[in-house]
Structure formats: structure tokens, C-alpha cells
């Protein structure tokens, strides 16, 4: 089979979707490799969900083509659906059913039966740390455990690729770390992960990240590569010493030569500067020249949020 030799699990060429005159997805091109954790970011309304719905075989494209796990999304949407898993914050488990009832429901939906079904449900319980707890009502599970049960349900039929649509919205850091450990294990075992998130610390955990703005894919690279390209310079965190002062500092440095971007950050201000001001002495002298104290300055790493804002507010 051709798909066996192909390292790409998703191939997208010129993918376009119109709603009336509105170009929700506009000539998008990318590939996702087997086992890759691929992050897909964008503002609300940028076209992420429309892209996912097309890739899951739920919505026909207006133009272009895409294959998912070897199946063409326009000509073989049913085969696409059989070969993918899907999980989202909004659509997942039945809260009033028990853990096992939920797993049985999904197993039936995927056509699993007999010994195979029992074995897969056993695996899913283990994966969600719910062995021996199958009778618990889903509503009573902690958020993080419920999240992992939803993931295990979406993987019951062992799809080669899983789509995760904002899987951790509202989940705390402890549970999120646990969830991402499972994601990385899946990736290591060869499952491809396509994930959307609004939380850019999670995007840092992806192998590659694509960013959509107004229906177009405007950037695609590793997190490090995106930062190098789109957030040049050095980020200084300047102490604000008291409420309200941060805004004064921001006002005093905004637009100055050598200053690339300014952002209040709690009691501090993040000031991104070019080479002229990157040396500590130069930056200290710059602050002093504006009547600002230079005794509380730290260099901080820019994050993907800075990349996101640089690209979206262009």
C-alpha cells in the first residue's frame, strides 16, 4: 500500500473552504509526519475548526485536496472517519454514564466486539488510571482523570492519528502535565497527534506548530524556529515597584529607538530590544536616560505568545 511507504500521515494541498464569499480556509498547505505532535494555533474564528472538520471528513472542501492516513477527505470521508480519533473539550463523554458504560458506548460505535472489545476496554481503563473503578459515574471523576478517559475512549479503535481540539481547556497544571505525558507516549509509539490549543505553553510541547490568521497558514516551524524568526532581539523584564508604575515604565519606553515591543506583565514590564540595547550596560543607560531605575532588570525568554502576537497584530 502506498500509505505504508509515505512518512506523511496528513498531506494538505491548497485546501480551501468558502462559506458564501467568506474564505474560512484559504489555500492551506502542510504535511504532518507519522508520530509527530503537530500544534495548530489561531485566534477564535481564524479557520482552525473548519480545517479540522475537513480533515476529519465532516466537511467537504471547496478547493484543494487532502489525505489523512491515506484516505482522500473529499472522495473517501467514511474511510477517513474510520482511521482517526477525535477528542474535544466540548464533545466527549456522557456524564451520567459510568466509566465502563462510556467505554462500551464508544466501542460499539467503532464496531468492536467480543474478546477484542474486552481487551481494548481493559487497556483504556489502564491508560486512564481507572483500573477497578469502571463503575464510577463519569461526572464524579476529577477533571484530569475525565480528560484521560475521554482520550482513551477516542483511541479505543487504535487510530493512527488523533485530533485533539482544545483538549485541556480549564485543566490545572498537574493534570495537564499528566495528560501531555500520555500524549508524548502515544507519539513515541507512532500515533500522530494533531492538536489545537489556546495555551501556548502547551504549544511549546509540540514538535511543530502552525499558526492560522484569517484563514491562511502564516507560519509553520518548530517552536524554537518560530521564536528565532518572528521574535528577534532580547526580552528584558523590568521591575515596576508598585501597582500602576508598570504602566508608567511602559509609556516611557514605548516607541524609543531600539525598542521593538513593550508589554505590561503584572508588576513588571517586558521590553523587547534590538542589538543596540541588548547589552546590560546599554539597557541600564537607556532606562536611566528616561528617568527610570535600572536596578531590577532580568533577561527573559520570549514565548510563543510573543510569536503569536507578532504575527496576528501585523
Amino acid at each position: 500500500m502506498r500509505a505504508e511507504a509515505n512518512p506523511n500521515v496528513i498531506e494538505v494541498e491548497g485546501l480551501t473552504r468558502l462559506f458564501g464569499d467568506f474564505r474560512a480556509v484559504d489555500d492551506v498547505n502542510f504535511q504532518v509526519r507519522r508520530g509527530e505532535i503537530f500544534g495548530y494555533l489561531g485566534a477564535n474564528g481564524a479557520g482552525k475548526s473548519t480545517t479540522i472538520r475537513m480533515l476529519c471528513g465532516l466537511l467537504a472542501p471547496t478547493g484543494g485536496r487532502a489525505t489523512v492516513a491515506g484516505a482522500d477527505i473529499a472522495r473517501e470521508p467514511q474511510r477517513v472517519k474510520e482511521r482517526i480519533g477525535y477528542m474535544s473539550q466540548k464533545f466527549s463523554l456522557y456524564m451520567d454514564l459510568s466509566v465502563v458504560e462510556n467505554l462500551n458506548f464508544f466501542a460499539s460505535a467503532y464496531g468492536l466486539a467480543g474478546a477484542e472489545r474486552r481487551a481494548r476496554i481493559g487497556d483504556a481503563l489502564a491508560q486512564a488510571d481507572l483500573e477497578g473503578k469502571g463503575d464510577l459515574v463519569t461526572r464524579d471523576l476529577a477533571g484530569g482523570v475525565r480528560q484521560r478517559l475521554a482520550l482513551a475512549s477516542a483511541l479505543l479503535h487504535r487510530p493512527p492519528i488523533i485530533f485533539l481540539d482544545e483538549p485541556t481547556a480549564g485543566v490545572d497544571p498537574v493534570a495537564r502535565r499528566g495528560f501531555w505525558r500520555v500524549i508524548r507516549e502515544l507519539s513515541r509509539a507512532g500515533t500522530t497527534i494533531f492538536v489545537t490549543t489556546h495555551h501556548l505553553d502547551e504549544a511549546e510541547l509540540c514538535h511543530r506548530v502552525g499558526l492560522m490568521v484569517d484563514g491562511k497558514l502564516v507560519a509553520l516551524d518548530t517552536p524554537e524556529g518560530l521564536k528565532r524568526t518572528h521574535v528577534p532581539g532580547t526580552m528584558m523584564s523590568v521591575g515596576g515597584q508598585g501597582e500602576g508604575r508598570a504602566r508608567n515604565i511602559a509609556a516611557a519606553v514605548t516607541g524609543a529607538p531600539g525598542v521593538l515591543a513593550v508589554q505590561p506583565f503584572g508588576l513588571r514590564v517586558h521590553v523587547r530590544v534590538d542589538d543596540r540595547l541588548a547589552a546590560p550596560a546599554a539597557f541600564g543607560a537607556f532606562l536611566a536616560s528616561r528617568g527610570l531605575p535600572a536596578d531590577d532588570v532580568e533577561v527573559v525568554e520570549p514565548g510563543l505568545e510573543d510569536v503569536f502576537l507578532a504575527l496576528v497584530q501585523r
Binding site: 485566534a43 481547556a169 489556546h198 503569536f308
Partner: peptide, 13 residues
């Protein structure tokens, strides 16, 4: 109470 849950990074900022 969790004012930015489900809000994209631009709107969040």
C-alpha cells in the same frame, strides 16, 4: 472566575 478559559491568546491579552 476563570475569565480567560476558552479565549484565544490575542483576546486574552
Amino acid at each position: 472566575d476563570e475569565p480567560t478559559n476558552g479565549v484565544d491568546p490575542v483576546s486574552r491579552r
